[in-house]
Amino acid sequence: MTEAELAARLRDEVGRTFGRSLHIRTIDTGSCAACESEIRMLLAPHYDLTRLGFFFTPTPRHADLLMVTGPGAVGMDHALRLTYQAMPDPKVVVAVGACPLGGVLGPDILTHGSIQELIPVDVVIPGCPPSPIALLHGLLVATGRLAARVNPARFMTAPPPAPGKTA
């Protein structure tokens, strides 16, 4: 089975498992609350998260998807681990913003600098903070309802030179 076939099968299974209804639990591991502000805006009429079958839940025991913000404060280790363990399988972890991806704070005595060593991250949503439309895109990528496409050409203002011409 090729990688593309495996990916297609995984997408089908995720779609079937969550049945277009998915409950989200958020956890803040020391962020500045900008990401939380954007996540809250997902419920505003302009974005209207519930039209797509996503709902926020106050307990991890009812959650299918964990949105983690913040750089992984050491003081939140226990809470993050318990939250992850309390979620029933299958579960999806989404890292929201630059903090959990190591872009804001480095590792020190107070933070891990990134959450990728703490819990397995399935989908990342870059941005500082990611706009609600980026969060919506990330949630649809997490449930396999949109293909993830980061086109490298978008980050070049002109086509790259032919091979052999690089310095």
Binding site: L101, V121, V123, P130, H137, G138, A148, V150
Partner: peptide, 14 residues
Amino acid sequence: CIELSTPGPRGTLV
């Protein structure tokens, strides 16, 4: 470009 979500952390490298 703001819609940059990818599965896994390695997909963000350009």
